[in-house]
């Protein structure tokens, strides 16, 4: 079984139930994308998988144990989460940001160890940020900035990397820059990546597995080929579309042809 899983997970904000009794399992060493319409609860699931949100009932299991019963710092050595559009204080450099990733490994009042320095250098190297390490975040392009944040998450030294919409507010070349980086981290460094993605074709192209969320439940899950079906697009997104294969890697792609009026009105 995978390292990260959810068992009968129910999540709510106050009394509004967002996610209702969901089971899911994250495949180790793969890239998984959570997809679904706006407000379906996919980001909420991701937050809960990263123990940022306590479930109303059910459990999130990290290495088979309830994530909320493990010390938060220990969890942070196994799992890194990057929230959607994170904010950094003004004037912070890339390298300083990256060092925040070592926080869970630090004891109170102790200085950074050689391992910390090595990990930060490695993380900056792996994200291609080493030449930009002394730049401040506000002097970077959108894609570079996101890579800097990813370097911080990498410096945590975790096997699991969770990202909430890592490509939002980025233009297309920067989106690909980030997704290619995540693919590289997965293929070359064995990181398990879980992310919320908006762009369905990018999700199909970059993720090994897709989990689609509809009305607080999982609609379907599996490889992009399994998930991309006509009923899926109709019911989850209210779209009529034509499903094709990419001429390059044979991954499925969708070409929307119009709205599906009856279901969308619901």
């Amino acid at each position: 079984m995978g390292k990260l899983a959810a068992d009968q997970l129910t999540l709510s904000y106050d009394s509004t139930v967002i996610i209702d009794g969901v089971d899911l399992k994250i495949e180790e060493g793969k890239i998984t994308a959570l997809i679904g319409a706006n407000g379906c609860g996919k980001s909420t699931i991701l937050k809960s998988l990263a123990r940022l949100m306590a479930p109303k009932s059910g459990t999130v299991l990290l290495e088979g144990k309830d994530i909320h019963r493990q010390p938060s710092k220990e969890v942070a050595k196994k799992l890194a989460i990057l929230p959607q559009s994170p904010q950094a204080p003004e004037g912070l450099t890339v390298e300083e940001l990256c060092y925040f990733g070592r926080h869970p490994h630090k004891k109170l009042l102790s200085k950074h160890t050689q391992e910390d320095h090595d990990m930060v250098e490695w993380a900056l190297e792996a994200t291609g940020m080493i030449e930009l390490k002394d730049r401040t975040l506000d002097a970077l392009s959108g894609g570079q900035r996101q890579r800097a944040w990813i370097s911080m998450a990498l410096a945590q030294g975790t096997d699991l990397l969770l990202l909430d919409e890592p490509t939002t507010y980025l233009d297309i070349s920067h989106q690909i820059e980030v997704l290619e980086l995540l693919k590289k981290l997965n293929r070359d460094h064995g990181r398990t990546v879980v992310m919320v993605l908006h762009d369905l074709n990018q999700a199909a192209q970059y993720a090994d597995y897709l989990i689609s969320v509809l009305d607080g439940k999982i609609y379907n899950a599996g490889t992009p080929e399994d998930v991309f079906t006509q009923p899926f697009f109709r019911e989850v997104f209210g779209l009529e579309c034509c499903i094709m294969r990419s001429p390059i890697d044979q991954k499925p792609m969708c070409l929307p042809t119009g709205l599906c009026p009856k279901l969308r009105a619901k």
Binding site: L52, S72, A76, K77, P104
Partner: peptide, 13 residues
């Protein structure tokens, strides 16, 4: 200053 979610993600309450 990184925000609640990141602080929590890095192991702080």
């Amino acid at each position: 200053s990184l925000g609640d979610e990141l602080a929590q993600g890095l192991g702080e309450n």
